[in-house]
Amino acid sequence: MTPLLEARRLVRSFGARRAVNDVSFGIAAGDALALFGPNGAGKTTLLRLLAGLLKPNVGAAAIAGEMLPAPEARARVGLISHRTMLYDTLTARENVRFAAQLHGIADAEGATQHALEQLRVADRAEVPVRALSRGLQQRVAIARAIVHGPDVLLADEPYTGLDEQGANALTGLLLERRAAGAALVVVTHALSEGLAVASHAAVMRAGSFVRHEATAGLDVVRYAAEYRELFA
């Protein structure tokens, strides 16, 4: 199947250090890649390359054939980071609506309400973000990232700060996006959370993929043991 998100021989260095080293992969519509690895493995840098926030030194990434960081490709991306990317003096609704307007959503108000309801935070929509707990802020951040119905959802530690209800809502949302034909990349340290939503899993070390496989038939306990052994 033609990949919706494609990375080809991506290399990104910071000074002498190669944060991402010759990474290639493709994700088809409706598939999800869970990306694991220790701190400093290059996961966040890879995600920033896929979001068009960083330019690769070598290689290229594309979404449905549109090369990143072209606006046509960025329009299809939703990004969830471990930072909320929200304005703390604006309300939850204003933050999400601003994102909808930047993407040119015709009914920005309706899309905003729908996204806030999906994350079960609509009842706090008029509260300034700074007055929300870290978990609720994360829910608003996720609502901001999905308000335009992105074809590619990039999530860097999306479960950070979420309680059980929030985590369940997020898992449901990720599976829903997959079912709707979106391609997902989920960076997480929690193997069980990542594998629960992923069709493929990859492990990064020193900027490169050291494992990359389909999750179908994967034994989570054995995978976790092998993962621990890899970094022992």
Binding site: A51, G52, L53, P71, E72, R74, A75, V77, L79, S81, R83, T84, M85, L86, Y87, D88, T89, A99, L102, H103, G104, R144
Partner: peptide, 18 residues
């Protein structure tokens, strides 16, 4: 400064605006 606090600038840069 308001763009740096929670890296809101990243969301602006990912948006399809110039």
């Amino acid at each position: 400064g308001v763009e740096q606090q929670e890296r809101a600038m990243d969301a602006l840069l990912v948006a399809p605006i110039s």
